[in-house]
Design a protein around this nucleic acid. Structure first.
Lengths: 344, 344
DNA sequence: CTGACCACCGTAAACGTTTACGGTACTATG
DNA sequence: CATAGTACCGTAAACGTTTACGGTGGTCAG
């Protein structure tokens, strides 16, 4: 005798009543419910998830899909850890288990997702590393699997998304640098077809145009979104005959490598070149200090979780006014790296 | 009509036969098996995991438990990503799904593990961030849940483990530095009760003793295992009146912060102080280049996976000679950071 | 007193598998 | 021809839940 049956036998009531009592159904005497609950903790009863899943067709699992290898995630991975933390706190409230689904860099993300879905693994998914055209969205929409994405995409199937305000960052950065006299301003972007690259570069160009300036195509640097990428960008930039006087770094981690590349050539941030980037736990150890954007990754995670729950029928009533699509502005932390000013 | 029943009806055979055919049982005609397999792909049939789990009492899931926050994992998290990658490749061969269970830094790892186990989540577990005394081991052993740990512990319940050869690294480093004339050699260790700290410091002391030297307790620096920790160590070290002439860095990530702290004071690695650390993707961007240990994290992951499978009854026959307990030696990559030599 | 209503509870089916058991038809052996 | 053996397949139980449905006993209004 195991499971709910054991509990029922012990209390000398039926398993139906036990189940109802545990699941908070109204049609059960409060006194019996109390007894059931007590016996459950006493006997250490915990419902079998397989039985429950089989019956209800739901797994109580939410998957957060990421990709291994910093070359792909590009945020130094600690970014996602913090976001994950925020998501976890929300789901824990609803007894939903959050797991990380790490797609190996050697596997196609689309195939990986198909496997996960075919297995009926999760009730909902959170997708990151969204591509500019992302076939995963259509796939999930067709299967009617609730999901939310971290990052916008041109592929729109009506799913909720959250994203960082890359346009805003570009605009603020450009305005700031132009005001300091810069005319030749470089920007970086990830090497692959991830959407944020387009958003960032395009808005940088528009912002420059607003000042009557153009974005020189030569000054758009594609890089791996990690330290190595930043280093490469520095080398390329230093090798140019007509160097830019300022640069925008779109990724969090590349500043480390970029600084290194500069210092090898004796070029000092804030004195010889102006830099605006993104803050990270690592960037605090850069010198001169980095001027860069920052936000609470944990809050972002919380918002992601709530956006997903809002689309899941079983929970949507709890989050009636969750923002289905929102851009998160980052705050600019002023450092020394963009102090470089040109004469008017 | 759904699932296996639909398939059976479509083929006009019984569900039992279908199941046997799909699961590779011997007592089914090869011709019918072929037909079943073909129909399965045609109709896109994929067995329901809940039904299967309920019947077999197994989930086909392996969990890799880590902790969020670099303050805890200490390896810059990219370490675990690579290990994860290796594990994944092995499990994929056996149709086991690997998920990452990320314990939030705000939750007690023991409680988290209990929740996971109570839910019957996984058939096996891989534990990281092993403490010197780790109650999780006894808990899992009592429940007879197969698990393997990345990292040794004083708590021994007979579980398999893999670990890095911290003793070997300490020995080699000390020998090397002593040969270069160093007498006052500092070591770092994580601030908490994680086992590797003890292994590393103790062996360093023994190695020094082998040369007739003692490890000055003042030269044992506890630090957070991240960039900030390395920076703090540098500050403390520089503030000492009787500075060490060499130092061993036990973590991968702290070199970044340590270098920064030194450079602020104009102290140059390899010229003013000798440093031996651990290589990481980030450390390649340090200058002067870091002398440090390295190993294939992916191979480590593969070995971890095989060690776990060897303890699982359903798979143990496939890995008869998997090493249940093994220390992985790292290779020393010679850089410039330990060039500093003292006169005899 | 009768009927309706209500609060609570028990019964049993259903979810989709796997697998022990037994049955059938055919082959080989004496 | 009788028997044993074999190859293959169908039947049905079991895994642990949830939940629709119906039943029981009580209360209360008419």
């Amino acid at each position: 005798m195991t499971g709910i049956r054991r509990l029922a036998q012990h209390l000398d009531i039926s398993i139906g009543t036990v189940s109802r009592a545990l699941n908070g159904r109204p049609d059960v005497n409060e006194e019996t419910r109390r007894r059931v609950l007590q016996a459950a903790t006493e006997l250490g009863y915990v419902p079998n998830q397989s039985g429950r899943s089989l019956r209800q067709g739901t797994t109580n699992i939410i998957g957060f899909m990421m990709q291994t290898g910093t070359e792909i995630t590009g945020q130094g991975d600690t970014f996602f850890m913090s976001v994950f933390d925020g998501i976890q706190t929300v789901f824990a409230r609803h007894r939903l288990d959050l797991v990380a689904l790490l797609c190996s860099s050697s596997e196609d993300p689309d195939d990986y997702l198909k496997r996960v879905v075919a297995r009926g693994f999760a009730d909902g998914l959170i997708l990151s590393a969204t591509q500019r055209h992302d076939p995963r969205f259509e796939f999930l929409a067709k299967r009617k699997i609730p999901f939310v994405t971290l990052g916008r995409s041109l592929t729109d199937v009506g799913q909720p998304w959250l994203d960082l305000d890359f346009e805003g960052m570009a605009q603020i950065s450009i305005d700031r640098l132009v005001a300091r006299g810069h005319r030749r301003i470089a920007v970086t972007r990830p090497h692959d077809d991830v959407n944020l690259g387009h958003l960032f570069v395009d808005q940088s160009a528009r912002a420059l145009a607003g000042h009557g300036l153009a974005l020189d195509p030569e000054l758009i640097f594609s890089s791996l979104p990690n330290e190595a990428g930043g280093y490469q960008v520095a080398r390329q930039l230093l090798a140019m005959t007509d160097r830019p006087t300022a640069i925008l770094l779109v990724n969090e981690t590349i500043a480390i490598g970029f600084y290194r590349g500069l210092s090898e050539a004796g070029v000092k941030p804030g004195r010889d070149i102006a830099i605006i980037g993104r803050q990270s736990p690592q960037s605090h150890f850069l010198s001169p200090s980095l001027t860069g954007f920052t936000l609470s990754r944990r809050d972002l995670g919380i918002a992601l979780a709530e956006a997903l729950l809002a689309t899941m029928p079983a929970f949507s009533h709890l989050y009636p006014d969750a923002d289905p699509r929102k851009v998160w502005s980052e705050d600019l932390i002023e450092g020394e790296s963009d102090a470089h000013t040109l004469p008017a």
